[in-house]
């Protein structure tokens, strides 16, 4: 299909449930799109789901925005109850989980749903595989997250964090 130049067409077909899709999307493998929310996909976005499917779940009234040149690897799942945005040139590794809602309160009635806190990933962010981004995660420009990290707060620009609970591994001094 690639050779026939049908890649983008097939990709567009697989992303037909998105609100908008930019120029030349690439989709390898399966992308599951659930929910009645709005999903916006920018230009040249790459979904590499050859190993495992990618799941995009936007609840009614929620919005997922993937900016230009975003790469998402297989097994990642983005679940939005309110708003999740991934900035340009960002990269989400395999088996990442992005949740903007905890789904259950820590105590009391487990079926009540707590409040959502939007998740923002700014430009050029790298998220390692198996990382978990919890409500309130805000990765600023060029931040990078080591594999397997759990994050639920703001990470300043250019900082790389890792471990659980997350610690700063390195700060970018000059660019």
């Amino acid at each position: 299909m690639m050779m026939l130049g049908l890649g983008p067409t097939v990709a567009r077909l697989k992303l037909r449930r998105c609100e908008s899709v930019g120029l030349r999307p690439t989709v390898w493998g399966r992308v599951w799109i659930h929910g009645e929310g709005e999903i916006q996909v920018g230009h040249r976005v790459l979904f590499d789901a050859r190993m495992a499917p990618i799941e995009l779940h936007a609840q009614r009234g929620a919005r997922i925005v993937l900016d230009d040149d975003v790469t998402i690897e297989g097994g990642s799942s983005i679940e939005a109850q309110s708003y999740v945005t991934v900035g340009a040139r960002s990269r989400l590794g395999m088996w990442c989980k992005v949740l903007d809602n905890m789904y259950h309160p820590l105590r009391g009635n487990r079926h009540a749903r707590p409040q959502s806190v939007p998740i923002v990933l700014e430009e050029g962010v790298t998220v390692g595989s198996r990382s978990i981004l919890l409500p309130g995660a805000h990765l600023q420009r060029g931040a990078s997250v080591a594999p397997g990290t759990v994050i639920s707060r703001r990470i300043p620009a250019g900082v790389s964090v890792g471990g659980s609970p997350a610690r700063v591994l390195r700060r970018e001094v000059a660019r």
């Binding site: 309160p105 105590r107 009391g108 009635n109």
Partner: peptide, 11 residues
């Protein structure tokens, strides 16, 4: 859990 979550009644 007392440290991070309110009592069951208000949770």
């Amino acid at each position: 859990l007392d440290l991070v979550a309110r009592e069951a009644s208000s949770a």
